[in-house]
Computed example of a mutant assay.
Amino acid sequence: MYFAFGDDDVVMIVDFPDSVSMAAVSLTVKASGTVRTRATPLLTVEEIDEAARREVTFRAAGA
């Protein structure tokens, strides 16, 4: 946990077993109304490499 100046008072790096677990905690904390949170998923180099190898079908709007 780090304290910060600016828009965010505290920055925490937490490790959850999966994205659904993180979403569950985030929803519960936000529902309390006492804390505003923002989650930024961090990806490993291996995860980015895997994403780069995946083929994605995409058509831009108007194309």
Results as ranks from 00 to 15, higher is better:
Met1Trp: 00
Met1Asp: 04
Met1Tyr: 03
Tyr2Glu: 12
Phe5Ala: 15
Phe5Ile: 14
Phe5Gly: 12
Gly6Asn: 10
Gly6Val: 03
Asp8Glu: 06
Asp8Leu: 05
Asp9Glu: 14
Val11Lys: 11
Met12Gly: 05
Met12Lys: 02
Ile13Pro: 02
Ile13Glu: 14
Ile13Gln: 09
Ile13Gly: 03
Val14Tyr: 04
Val14Lys: 13
Asp15Gln: 04
Asp18Gly: 10
Asp18Leu: 12
Ser21Ala: 15
Ser21Arg: 03
Ser21Gln: 10
Met22Lys: 04
Met22Tyr: 05
Ala23Ser: 15
Ala23Ile: 05
Ala24Arg: 08
Ala24Gly: 02
Val25Phe: 12
Ser26Thr: 08
Thr28Pro: 00
Val29Tyr: 01
Ala31Trp: 02
Ser32Asp: 14
Ser32Arg: 10
Thr34Ser: 05
Val35Arg: 13
Arg36Trp: 03
Thr37Phe: 07
Thr37Lys: 08
Arg38Pro: 00
Arg38Ile: 09
Arg38Tyr: 11
Arg38Ser: 15
Ala39Phe: 05
Ala39Pro: 00
Ala39Leu: 13
Thr40Met: 15
Thr40Glu: 15
Pro41Glu: 13
Leu42Trp: 09
Leu43Gln: 12
Leu43Pro: 04
Thr44Glu: 12
Val45Leu: 07
Glu46Asn: 15
Glu47His: 08
Glu47Lys: 00
Glu47Ser: 10
Ile48Asp: 06
Ile48Val: 15
Glu50Val: 08
Ala51Glu: 09
Ala51Gln: 07
Ala51Tyr: 01
Arg54Thr: 12
Arg54Cys: 11
Val56Arg: 03
Val56Gln: 14
Val56Trp: 04
Thr57His: 05
Phe58Arg: 06
Phe58Asp: 03
Arg59Asp: 04
Arg59Pro: 00
Ala60Val: 00
Ala61Arg: 06
Ala61Glu: 11
Ala61His: 01
Ala61Asp: 13
Gly62Arg: 02
Gly62Asp: 12
Ala63Thr: 04
Ala63Trp: 06
